[in-house]
Design a protein around this nucleic acid. Structure first.
Length: 299
DNA sequence: GGGTGTTTACCGTGCC
DNA sequence: GGCACGGTAAACACCC
């Protein structure tokens, strides 16, 4: 097992669990949701170790997706055919990892432990799915607007984070943010990215935190998307780097959208891997949720 | 048929 | 030692 801080993980097994890797993939996507195949791609492109024995680790990864409540399955829309559903992170799983570190969770995330019923928010799974759609659309709209805004790279736009203090070098923001440390720094990426995320982060601030993702990246993640800002693995990894790269909290800020919580609290199966409904009905008991795919189709 | 998703089981490791 | 977590294997069902 490679030790954090060593030169590279290039061909060694990264010190991240499959849960962590999956979380990275999901959070690196502007939509904060990815189909399984794109999660595979993300991992294989960034961690050469996983380019081999694909069946083994992919089986494990699928197991984790289903087994862990921190991952939620979002059905495809009927008019958006394709294999498999989209996978997203449970909004309340932000504090799942010890000190924000993705090396090891401090506790297993379980749905039902933090139900936050909200009389103002939607309570149906469709509503939460719709909310995710709206978030994606909102980001897109803001992207266009942000293209005309001055870039504010200072501090990676940390202003939106409600918390301060050291974050573990293995926090997702730090891990992914390192990939932005390309020669030329932020100039290598579309302008207004980080501030934009900050503006869009009130819903899931831990997800839309600074330095998480290129906001202008296509909504559907493909290998080419990553290559656009991909970089040598040595850059991705920890060796010889100044850590922490970006002290950003991964924990969700107070005020998580209640309808998301309600969605999760009321979701019988698609969010809870132990119910038979998910396997049979792709989640919502009221039929396919308002699909998020429309957000992907925006571009 | 292949990809996807679920479930069960077993084992290793780390923490209390 | 017990427990929680993580990794792996396997079987099965469903869907495109």
């Amino acid at each position: 097992m490679p030790r954090p801080g060593r030169n590279t993980y290039s061909d060694q097994k990264p010190p991240y669990s499959y849960i962590s890797l999956t979380a990275m993939a999901i959070q690196s996507c502007p939509d904060k949701m990815l189909p399984l195949s794109d999660i595979y791609k993300f991992i294989m492109e960034r961690f050469p170790y996983y380019r081999e024995n694909t069946q083994r680790w992919q089986n494990s990864l699928r197991h984790n997706l289903s087994f862990n409540d921190c991952f939620i399955k979002i059905p495809r829309r009927p008019d958006q055919p394709g294999k498999g559903s989209f996978w997203a992170l449970h909004p309340n799983c932000g504090d799942m990892f010890e000190n924000g570190s993705f090396l090891r969770r401090r506790k297993r995330f379980k749905v039902g432990g933090v139900p936050v019923p909200d009389p103002l928010g939607p309570s149906k799974p469709q509503d939460a799915a719709h909310f995710l759609h709206q978030q994606a659309k909102l980001r897109l709209s803001a992207l266009h607007a942000a293209a005309h805004l001055p870039q504010v790279p200072a501090g990676y736009g940390l202003g939106s984070t409600q918390q301060s203090g050291f974050k573990h070098p293995f926090a997702i923001e730090n891990i992914i943010a390192r990939e932005y440390k390309v020669p030329g720094g932020l100039a290598a990426f579309p302008a207004a990215g980080y501030p934009l995320h900050n503006q869009l982060s009130p819903a899931w601030p831990h997800m839309y935190g600074p330095g998480v993702m290129d906001p202008a990246a296509p909504l559907s993640v493909a290998p080419a998307d990553y290559s656009a800002y991909g970089m040598p693995l040595k850059t991705l990894c920890h060796g010889g780097q100044t850590l922490p790269a970006i002290p950003v909290p991964i924990k969700p800020a107070p005020g998580l959208p209640a309808h998301i919580s309600a969605f999760l609290a009321h979701s019988p199966r698609s969010l809870s891997p132990t119910s038979p409904q998910a396997a049979a009905g792709q989640g919502s008991p009221a039929g396919p949720a308002e699909p998020l795919q429309s957000a992907v189709a925006v571009h």
